[in-house]
Design a protein around this nucleic acid. Structure first.
Length: 439
DNA sequence: AGATCCGGTATG
DNA sequence: CATACCGGATCT
């Protein structure tokens, strides 16, 4: 069973509460039948771990996509996404079915919290072309409703920037005036090769990263990486800073909004050298993004984030945060010993803001509408109505401060007193709520 | 042999 | 159309 510990790596030793879904929390196989990529295994000190075969989709990327094998249709878990790294919730219908939790094992599906994003992406690639996508009228009540966040369209929107179903209406909406939407094959990029090419251009896609790890032999004429099975030394991308918004409601920096526990979790998360693959967490857990604040001040939190009053003042005065050595926190099973407590401040940057109010679900059932940055009139109206205005932030595509754009913005409030990376359904208020539907 | 769970099919 | 079921691939 899980012992909650991992071997120390390099300069740091981390003990993570296994109940907080972050890393595969043990020393042999985290979950039987679940497989982790070599870089994760190496980092966790699992030297006797034998990796699974090359995922068919990646392995076949350099060959013609028409090749058919029995394993090609089967999606392999990536092992690094949040879903793969979550433990079974034990409460969903599939957990209850599983013999692991005393069930009969007839449904034979994975926990709803453990859905692999890579498998989801495979499914999108495969199903989007035949999906009965619709475009809403944008005028009816249904269209004005918040997206369900659980249908294929919403999942595409949440995790893949609408890449596969651009323009499609949330499948749960029953707009009477909706028109069918033809999704061109090119847009869906159901060719793995094209996927890889685009990933190569963006330098941020999981498939590309995994392909690169497996060995890239130059590029083909069209720019797509050529994948081979010969291991070569590949220069890994630099550790990505975790960029968080530290602004208060009116753009005033408000680090006190972060509780110690929150910072603790940030500290755990921001260790790409300890958690290889963490930089691939472009798949935000939208449930944790209930607010996107104007990010006129942005800072990276490095190891051992912990704000003091003095740092808070410093940060408010010049837009940077000084971060001290972590302090041991009572009543917390996480401990961090870090040799690094450096502040890396990123210069303030005028953010760009999108104009589309995008409702996002709040785990408590409260929906938040994001206002365009400049729409202060709307914000004032909301304030007058006793509502809290929120603003949506948007960055230039693909790059943020020279780094690939990653979409794990932080919020200025915690949704739950627990570690924010505990799956939403673990939160007390979500006890009886369904967070993700079976795909 | 046993466990996990994807993906196709049956069912209501 | 959503859900349940289950064959079988892929692992230990």
């Amino acid at each position: 069973m899980m012992d909650g510990s991992r071997p120390p790596t390099q300069s740091q030793a981390i003990v993570v509460n296994p109940a907080q879904c972050m890393m595969p929390p043990h020393s042999t196989m985290p979950y039987p039948g679940v497989h982790f990529p070599p870089h994760l295994v190496a980092a966790a000190g699992l030297s006797n771990y034998r990796p699974p075969p090359v995922p068919a989709a990646v392995a076949s990327a350099s060959s013609t996509p028409t090749t058919t094998t029995s394993s090609m249709n089967r999606s392999q878990r990536c092992g690094v996404c949040r879903g793969c790294q979550c433990k079974p919730c034990g409460t969903c219908t599939y957990c209850q079915d599983s013999p692991q939790f005393g069930g009969p094992g007839v449904k034979k599906q994975s926990c709803i919290e453990r859905r692999c994003l890579r498998v989801l992406e495979n499914r999108l690639q495969r199903d989007a072309p035949t999906f009965k996508a619709r475009v809403g009228c944008n005028n009816c009540d249904d269209c004005r409703m918040a997206d369900c966040q659980i249908c294929l369209v919403c999942l595409d929107k949440r995790f893949f920037d609408n890449r596969y179903m651009t323009g499609a209406l949330c499948a749960k909406k029953r707009c009477n005036n909706a028109t069918s939407l033809e999704i061109p094959a090119a847009q869906n990029s159901n060719s793995e090769r094209q996927m890889l090419k685009r990933s190569y251009e963006n330098n941020s896609n999981y498939d590309y990263m995994m392909a690169k790890r497996r060995g890239v032999e130059g590029s083909s004429a069209n720019g797509a990486p050529t994948i081979t099975h010969t291991p070569v030394n590949v220069q890994m991308p630099p550790a990505m800073p975790r960029v968080i918004a530290i602004n208060g409601t009116n753009g005033v920096p408000d680090p006190s909004a972060y509780s110690a526990a929150h910072l603790q979790s940030l500290r755990i998360l921001h260790q790409p050298q300890t958690i290889p693959g963490a930089h691939q967490m472009k798949y935000a857990q939208p449930s944790f993004i209930n607010l996107l604040m104007p990010m006129t001040t942005v800072a990276t939190i490095t190891n051992g984030a912990s704000l003091t009053e003095q740092q808070s003042q410093q940060q408010q005065s010049n837009g940077t945060i000084a971060i001290s050595q972590p302090q041991q926190e009572a009543n917390n099973t996480q401990t961090v010993t870090s040799t690094s407590s450096i502040v890396t401040s990123i210069p303030s940057m005028p953010p760009q803001f999108v104009g589309l109010p995008t409702p996002m679900p709040h785990p408590n059932g409260v929906y938040t509408t994001f206002l365009p940055h400049a729409d202060m009139a709307a914000a004032a109206a909301m304030s007058a109505a006793g509502m809290q205005p929120h603003f949506a932030a948007h960055y230039p595509p693909h790059k943020l401060f020279g780094y690939p754009k990653y979409e794990y913005y932080e919020t200025d409030t915690m949704l739950s007193p627990q570690d924010p990376f505990v799956p939403p359904s673990y939160a007390p208020e979500m006890k009886n709520a369904v967070v993700l539907q079976p795909l």
